[in-house]
Amino acid sequence: MTALTTPYLWYSTRATGIVALLLLTLVVFLGTFVANRIGGTIVGRFEINELHRSLSIVAVIFLALHIVTTVIDSYVATGWLSTVVPFASPYKTTQVAIGTIAFDLILAVWISSLLKVRIKNATWRFIHWFSWIAYITALVHAAMIGTDTKGTTGLAFVAFSAGAIVVAGLWRFFGRPTRAGGRTALSPLARAARPAAPSAKSANSPFPRDQRPTSKGRPRR
């Protein structure tokens, strides 16, 4: 590698790492919003979903900057192989490897989402669960190797992120709605008067009455 030893690469690595972690926190929260059927009144549910998708791309861009600036900074020897293969970095092998594992998991989630229309939805969902492990791994990586996570502010940031992911996880698990989140109040149709013919309406529904979930109770999986 050419001798790229300006300190600015190192500063960029630190800064983009912090921003990437913050963005990942946001993306995880927005994903929890979508799964828990938040929205539908002031903002649409589809808008939260679109924000989740768009912000995840921004997070991946910052993650790419974080990784590229780390590798081309020749002050520490990591090497291109260590971006995807864990334990390939001579510099701080374990700590870098944890970040590599996080990146591999994020890569899996990202690629499966790009291919979402081409793969089975169950496959996509299974891979999407990796994002929780990816976030926790990334946080451990930040806490172990982060230059900025040593001081009070940095430790507060790590604690905030850890608290956020725990809150999101608990909320995702316990705050799961019933399968259907109900009518959303956003669309013009929702504001219009309901047709006063429930029998004709349910005849149109593609779901037979006995297969419908009730408004109470756990989702059937």
């Binding site: 589809f46 109900g182 009518r183 149709l189 349910s202």
Partner: peptide, 22 residues
């Protein structure tokens, strides 16, 4: 029953009271 289709295409998709599309 996420209801996104109803928000994105209200002229084509109505929602029943459980949130499933009609």
């Amino acid at each position: 029953g996420f209801g996104h289709c109803h928000e994105l295409a209200p002229e084509l998709v109505d929602i029943d009271e459980w949130g499933y599309p009609i």
